[in-house]
């Protein structure tokens, strides 16, 4: 029981769950696991089925694309307190890039298939999660557009 309690606590203290109801935290818990990735390990790879997402507790994750002949390029990063991955809510549920632990990463991982099933049972949970993920997607899109401007390049 203590393990389950710990999992619930870990969900509750993560910034991404702030303001979430007990009922929804309980539903999330049923799809959650506490995981650890050693430095250099991949959380997921481009093209794989996106069946999970992560709430990072500690450590740093680099999001990378392999782009020959340039090699592998880091395009974004996530650190403690961040959520990682939204491909699990967008068909065809496939990862767009690689995610590699730059340093040891401790995170909560959620099974997207499990959660999508719960969305069908409780649309309020789906709304709650979309309400949290859409700003994340929005901010990431805006950041990407700024990066595309290459604002620090010579005029």
């Amino acid at each position: 029981m203590s393990g389950i309690h710990d999992l619930e606590q870990l969900i509750r203290v993560h910034p991404f769950s702030q303001g979430m109801s007990d009922e929804h935290i309980n539903m999330l818990k049923g799809c959650a696991k506490n995981v650890c990735f050693r430095q250099g390990a991949f959380l997921f790879k481009e093209g794989e089925d996106a069946e999970t997402f992560y709430w990072i507790r500690t450590g740093k994750v680099a999001m990378e694309l392999h782009a020959p002949p340039k090699g592998t390029i880091q395009i974004d990063s996530r650190t403690a307190g961040d959520a990682l991955g939204w491909s699990w809510i967008v068909e065809p549920y496939r990862w767009f890039c690689d995610a590699r632990a730059v340093e040891e990463v401790r995170a909560l991982t959620f099974n997207g298939v499990c959660l999508r099933g719960k969305f069908d049972q409780d649309p309020r949970l789906a709304h709650e999660m979309y309400r949290r993920f859409v700003p994340l997607i929005h901010r990431s899109l805006q950041a990407t557009q700024l990066q595309l401007l290459d604002v620090y390049g010579a005029n």
Partner: peptide
Amino acid sequence: VIIDHAATDWYGDVGVVTALLGK
């Protein structure tokens, strides 16, 4: 410190500087 893009030997943050403000 955050940078727009990097090779794999960069251990810092990647993204735009405004992303750092939230923390």
